[in-house]
Simulated scan of single mutants.
Amino acid sequence: MNATMKPLKEYNIQFVGLKLGKHHFDYQIDNKFFEHFEYDEFNDVNIKVDLGFEKKTTLLELHFQASGMVNVNCDTTNEPYNQKIKTDFDLVVKFGEEYNDENEDILIIPHGEYEVNVAQYIYELIVLSLPAKRIHPGIADGTLQSDILKKLEELSPKGLEEKEKTEEIDPRWNTLKKLLTDK
């Protein structure tokens, strides 16, 4: 996390005041959340995060479930589309001598801490749930009409072959080809 960024306070869970057992937190994630992380690859965001939070005597167990959509631009056509998101993540919070988040699913916080901030985990959960290549669903089913797609089709090996067939071959090439085959 950027050193100058203050943690988002509404994502602090003060577990000291919670009874042992299961608790539930809901978060509605939108563009403002990602602006805080200076992440601007989403045009629009509408994601609900359900956080199951279990307080045990020696540790905390967190189960994040995120579902909804982000509007992103297609890597091929740059056309915006809605990418569905459905993902989950488990985190165990333990207590130790010093803060340590090197292990991705275990967070160690110092003894005496009374709250945990879950914003960074929600951010990573959503960003990492996106496919590596963002492809508009209209490409696969043929419903997306785009100038870029038409150009890509023309430039594809199949498109170039068809172009060559339709263009009249200069007769001088035929003479050259004849020289090559008459060896």
Score class of each variant (00 low, 15 high):
Glu102Leu: 09
Glu104Phe: 07
Lys86Ser: 14
Ile108Asp: 03
Phe95Cys: 08
Cys74Leu: 02
Val49Asn: 07
Leu60Thr: 11
Glu102Trp: 00
Phe95Gly: 13
Glu97Gly: 04
Glu61Trp: 15
Lys55Val: 11
Thr58Tyr: 06
Asp44Thr: 05
Tyr114Trp: 07
Gly96Asp: 07
Phe64Cys: 12
Glu97Thr: 07
Val70Glu: 04
Lys84Asn: 11
Asn73Asp: 06
Ile47Trp: 01
Val45Glu: 02
Asp50Val: 13
Leu59Gly: 13
Gly112Ser: 01
Phe53Cys: 11
Lys86Leu: 13
Asn103Ile: 07
Tyr81Met: 06
Gly112Pro: 01
Ala66His: 10
Leu107Thr: 07
Asp101Arg: 09
Asn82Arg: 06
His111Ile: 01
Val72Gln: 01
Thr57Trp: 11
Leu91Pro: 06
Lys56Ala: 04
Leu62Ala: 10
Lys84Leu: 14
Asp50Glu: 11
Lys94Gln: 09
Lys94Phe: 03
Ile108Leu: 02
Leu107Ile: 07
Asn78Phe: 10
Asn82Gln: 03
Val118Tyr: 12
Asn100Gly: 05
Asn103Gln: 11
Glu115His: 12
Asn71Asp: 06
Gln83Arg: 04
Tyr81Thr: 02
Ala66Val: 10
Val116Ala: 09
Ser67Cys: 07
Ser67Leu: 11
Leu51Thr: 12
Thr76Arg: 00
Glu104Gly: 03
Asn71Glu: 12
Gly68Ala: 10
Gly112Leu: 00
Thr77Val: 03
Gln65Arg: 09
Asn78Trp: 08
His111Thr: 01
Val70Arg: 00
Asn103Ala: 11
Thr58Leu: 07
Glu79Arg: 02
Phe89Ala: 08
Gly112Asp: 01
Phe95His: 05
Phe42Thr: 01
Phe95Gln: 05
Asn43Phe: 08
Val70Ala: 04
Tyr99Arg: 00
Ile47Val: 14
Thr57Pro: 11
Ile106Arg: 00
Ile106Tyr: 03
Tyr99His: 05
Tyr99Phe: 10
Cys74Ile: 09
Lys86Pro: 14
Val70Ser: 00
Asn100Ala: 02
Phe95Arg: 00
Met69Glu: 13
Val49Asp: 05
Gly52His: 10
Gly68Asn: 01
Asn73Cys: 12
Glu97Tyr: 02
Gln83Ala: 11
Leu91Ala: 06
Lys48Ile: 15
Asn117Cys: 10
Pro80Met: 08
Ile108Ala: 02
Glu54Met: 05
Thr57Arg: 04
Ala66Tyr: 10
Leu91Cys: 05
